[in-house]
């Protein structure tokens, strides 16, 4: 089997100085299992990057490592050039990294609005705790929440509770909660699972809009087509290692990637 590593690309193949997020020889081992086995990459500013990989390739663990929910065995994490490999999980959000989860994690007893407000609370809390929020504070918060809800197509559903929403809508609440934080980096963990084509396109459009505003995004998805459509840059993982990095069309045709997905070499090159 070919150990096809990173192909030289006109795009970048390794971390750059201006990257928003840099991983340097990152490894996460659980006992004998090497879930992430030495990954080095950088997320370019203002781009949408994607991580492709079959089940068990380590993508979720990688996300866990990036958000500090999973401890590192080795390597460094850098955000905006600053090393954050040792911070506590709750500090990650404060850095400006927002995320959604693979399984929807909304608070069932709160309304959609309140769930999204939870995300805004983080950036709103720059006051001393004894000062109650003033009118101006409340208006800013309301505006931010309303904007986030509108962008994710949830206007009018503020008063509903997660239990009353379809799965696709619940996912959108998660996204709204993440973007209301005005993050500098947005991590999306399989955001369109459970959505139909219609909704998937909307999410893709939302991501394009966010990119236009300068937001850097990292998406982990199973829907290869969506990744190809939406991402500026793709990384492919298998068995904890990076096996390809480049433009989506290149990565998707990479023999190592096809072997990881299909388990065989595809000699027929039917594409242009």
């Amino acid at each position: 089997m070919t150990t096809e590593l990173v192909r030289p690309q006109p795009d970048h193949s390794g971390p750059d100085a201006g990257d928003v997020l840099t991983l340097d020889d990152l490894a996460v081992h659980f006992g004998g299992i090497k879930a992430v086995d030495g990954i080095t990459l950088g997320l370019a500013r203002g781009r949408i990057s994607g991580i492709l990989g079959p089940n068990g390739s380590g993508k979720s663990t990688l996300l866990g490592a990036i958000t500090r929910l999973t401890p590192l065995t080795r390597g460094t994490l850098r955000f905006e050039g600053r090393d954050y490999s040792r911070v506590r999980p709750e500090a990650v959000a404060r850095l400006g990294i927002g995320r959604t989860f693979q399984t929807v994690r909304l608070l069932e007893d709160l309304t959609v609005r309140e769930n999204v407000q939870l995300g805004h609370d983080l950036i709103a809390g720059a006051r001393p705790w004894w000062r109650r929020p003033g009118k101006a504070d409340r208006e800013t918060a309301d505006a931010a929440v309303a904007t986030a809800l509108e962008r994710t197509g949830l206007a009018g559903k503020e008063a509903l509770r997660p239990g009353q929403l379809s799965y696709g809508l619940q996912r959108r609440v998660e996204i709204a909660r993440a973007i209301v934080m005005s993050p500098k980096l947005l991590l999306l963990d399989e955001p369109t699972a459970g959505m139909n084509r219609f909704e998937r396109e909307e999410i893709g459009e939302l991501m394009a809009d966010l990119r236009a505003e300068g937001l850097t995004q990292l998406i982990v998805e199973h829907d290869v087509q969506m990744m190809v459509d939406v991402c500026d840059h793709l990384f492919a993982m298998n068995s904890g290692r990076l096996i390809a990095s480049g433009t989506p069309s290149d990565v998707v045709r990479d023999p190592a990637v096809r072997e990881a997905y299909l388990g065989r070499q595809d000699n027929d090159d039917r594409d242009s």
Binding site: E90, A93, R94, D109, Q117, L118, L122, G125
Partner: peptide, 21 residues
């Protein structure tokens, strides 16, 4: 308000709460 939401998060889903700062 915010305190109520945070306590809710801490109780129902501590990992989520962490991710929310």
């Amino acid at each position: 308000g915010a305190m109520g939401r945070r306590i809710e998060a801490v109780r129902e889903d501590p990992e989520l709460a962490s991710a929310m700062g």
